[in-house]
Design a protein around this nucleic acid. Sequence first.
DNA 1: ACGCCCGATACCCGCAAGGTATGCAACAGA
DNA 2: TCTGTTGCATACCTTGCGGGTATCGGGCGT
Lengths: 282, 282
Amino acid sequence: MDSRELRYFVAVAEEMHFGRAAQRLGIAQPPLSRTIMQLERRLGTPLLRRDSRPVTLTEAGVVLLHEGRAALEALEAAEHRARRAALAATGGPRVTLAIKAGASTELLAKLLDAYAAEPDSVYVDVLLCGPGEQTRLLRNGHADVAILHPPIDDTTGFDTEELATEGQVAVLPAGHPLTTRTHVTAAEIAELTDLPQPRWPRRDGTYADGPGPEVQSHSQLLQLIALNRTTVIAPESCRSQLRTDVVAVPVIDAPRITTVMAWPPRSRLRAVAGLLRTAARL
Amino acid sequence: MDSRELRYFVAVAEEMHFGRAAQRLGIAQPPLSRTIMQLERRLGTPLLRRDSRPVTLTEAGVVLLHEGRAALEALEAAEHRARRAALAATGGPRVTLAIKAGASTELLAKLLDAYAAEPDSVYVDVLLCGPGEQTRLLRNGHADVAILHPPIDDTTGFDTEELATEGQVAVLPAGHPLTTRTHVTAAEIAELTDLPQPRWPRRDGTYADGPGPEVQSHSQLLQLIALNRTTVIAPESCRSQLRTDVVAVPVIDAPRITTVMAWPPRSRLRAVAGLLRTAARL
DNA sequence: ACGCCCGATACCCGCAAGGTATGCAACAGA
DNA sequence: TCTGTTGCATACCTTGCGGGTATCGGGCGT
């Protein structure tokens, strides 16, 4: 199968609309229709039901959308990794590590320092990315290794190694009644109608409905907490990033957050192995 | 990147020779040369060193060969899985299970019977394949799930679930001195110069050098054991397939063999989940 | 019933993929 | 060192296919 056909099909399957898909692909609609029909002939099965609007996927179409996305990502990954391998061969070897922007830097700093002191260490490019973006970067070859937090992040399809596990704390305004407690429960925090949970923007920039304030950044969130507007439950390592006008109280029954290092399976990069050895010693 | 270019590059990288690669691809050599050069321009880096013969891979070339193979397999997989999904939608749902030909059928038979009795079970196509072939079939989409035996089989890149673990036995000719023992060690078996280890054919059909007899099949092997020509260490479940003129003696220090079910990560097939649930109850 | 939306069809064009002929550089043998 | 052979690159031609425009036809809303 040709990757072009697959790319076209994925576009149509995602848009559920030939015209919009064609626009997204930068081609006209008729050649797109033709290519999809060619693909269907080649596979010997229809992928789309056009008899009702909007067009819908057949069973085979659903499968091809899932598997095809993975295949296209693998193609991208091959291209990017080869390109980066070329850079590493000329300008000195390096690896790219993807971490969530705003995540705890303590553990990471220790790891990077320790690794840099290793005899065969290479330069580590640190790639800050949005929430949940790390797995995509790992899959499409923009990163070699990532720091993830299951079960928030989905690690299926990657090799992983656990680095740390920690409890969670509720971040409350200084002076709030609960700050006198040694610990609280998740239910208690959820029931605080005076401090409703904040709402983060979704992928498309819109917000879910709810009583909590809309936030775009961590500093904004901390300010809103200090102003008695909201509260949040976060890993305890966030303590080092807190302002003095907010207080962290352990949440006794919140799920423990694990920090894992993840990399694509059968990645044979020496640098990843080195990072792992270093991490194992910490 | 176009899959055609990648296919061409992989052919050249595997053959280390433009002419042979072109022949394998069914095209002439000049367009192949041109396509590889286009790919190199697109990536902005040379992939092959042509200044000495045979042509050799650059660092980027090595990476692209590895990653590119995986990407091409993912493409194949998408195609095959979509095609099979279409079949499943018309002719009743089914899954394809890959097992090594000649492996123990006891556990498998129990599993399949139990699964068939489940309320939402579907027909299971059993695909017999050569040693180490299961992972390839899983990767390229010819199979949905497989029975593997790590550490013999490489399971990196798959989700797995352990089904069973068993010790190993030495299969000896009836009447051999060691058959009176309750157990033996691997070293003792290796030191039996009168019964050298058998030699299996490699992928290309040739055999490694050594004193042992060349064998192609299990029945051949058993006959050679009965004839006092060789011996072999195998999982204890092989006992049910032995003839009466050979004897199995536990090897006390042989690594335990695990039987795992493996499937591609983020495969969402209900049938695979059903098989797993059934397996968990056995 | 009418009009609109949207995918399919018909037809044309240009380019890039593939073929043939040949040049030129690298290894092997003397 | 010279020469022949092997093997990748270059030059040039041909053609099929990917893409564009114009238009048709069917489903759905009003």
